[in-house]
Design a binder for these strands. Structure first.
Lengths: 207, 207
DNA sequence: TCTATCTTTGACCAGTTGGTTAAATCGGTT
DNA sequence: AACCGATTTAACCAACTGGTCAAAGATAGA
């Protein structure tokens, strides 16, 4: 398509993203990334000196894709029900565009949890604790007002994210067992699932 | 402890389980498995001719751990609410004993979905469709009786499993972001979460 | 046109990897 | 004690892996 116009650095990042996300850090081969980028392997090392540095870059880009929208939604002034609606709507769309990222991130973090620490060190602007505290305060305020049932914020957040992410991460097994490996059927399932998850959560927490 | 009493084959399987589950198929090294089993690398190949054959064995054992209880619960004669209670109770305990298996299985299936097909070919007794059909029939029957709200069985099953498995698979990221990487605190969270998930699901689907 | 810097390449290297082989050792049988 | 199959080992190998290097092209300014 537009390959000849892209600069080498971007071609490398695109190729590396594909290979790393499909095969993981340990399974990826520098030669394959070079081939997919249409360049020499030496050139790969010219731009990103080591495999680890290239991996780190790819991982950070992947991770960053899911952070800004979360902050935006959680810090907005909407009531909790609307925030949850918004969150599900936005992240299910985002996952449709980037289905391999969650599995990639989860897997690499299990392999080496230290990666997260490095990310936090470099991105000082992500003050997760403040983010959580503010959202928690809102939840407990709405509990007081009788809008939602008494609920633990961490459990609620885990549920919302889990219900969105799990069917993407575990796609091969769910699609294989419950959908006879029918890809199209599973895509339809995921699309319809948006409203299901919204209802499921709201039903459960509304007072 | 009791290593000298174990036979070589079992020592190999134990070591292979550890290494494969922690580093994945591509990250695992035959030498490391041999070392951990306290044997020579050639002996590893004497018992399991190739890395792939050893991996297949380890994967099948891991996968099998989570199947029987599921069949038992789903095919039992309890009402749906009880089945869900039972399911959450049993699988959260199972996951406490085998926390690395879900991530391992999910990751390897994303790398090579073909593995699932091979498992089904070898385990003819797992007729998932029959299993699903019977459970689906029970759900819809209880919907008719007005016990639970109208609901899609596949979405419900995805939710139940996802709410159980996700906090285990995504432990590094959730523990890191929401629990300041406090391992003990997260263990407490998981223990308390059992009842939370039960309530969360029942609240959502009861008519 | 000359030159200095950036980009790209083919050839190469040392360390690692899964796997093999021939010989040694063990354990039981005769 | 001689024998035989199963088990275990040290030494080895070809292929692969991340990474390097010197030299060749490309590009733009003087």
């Amino acid at each position: 398509m537009n390959e000849p116009e892209m600069n080498t650095e971007q071609k490398i990042l695109d190729a590396a993203k594909d290979v790393f996300q499909q095969k993981g850090m340990t399974g990826a081969r520098m030669q394959e990334i070079a081939d997919k980028a249409g360049i020499n392997k030496a050139l790969l090392h010219y731009y990103y000196r080591t495999k680890e540095k290239l991996f780190e870059k790819v991982f950070n880009i992947a991770f960053s894709i899911f952070i800004p929208k979360m902050q935006e939604i959680m810090l907005s002034e909407k009531p909790v029900f609307e925030k949850i609606d918004f969150f599900i709507e936005n992240y299910m769309d985002l996952l449709t565009k980037h289905p391999y990222i969650p599995g990639f991130v989860i897997n690499e973090l299990n392999r080496n949890p230290q990666i997260l620490v490095n990310i936090f060190e470099k991105n000082v602007q992500i003050k997760e604790n403040k983010l959580f505290e503010k959202f928690d305060a809102q939840i407990q305020a709405e509990v007081q007002k009788g809008i939602i049932k008494p609920i633990d914020t961490r459990n609620l957040m885990t549920n919302v994210i889990g219900l969105i992410v799990f069917p993407i991460v575990a796609r091969p097994i769910i699609q294989g067992i419950m959908f006879e490996n029918d890809k199209k059927q599973y895509d339809v399932f995921l699309k319809q699932r948006k409203d299901f998850v919204k209802e499921f959560i709201i039903n459960s927490i509304k007072a």
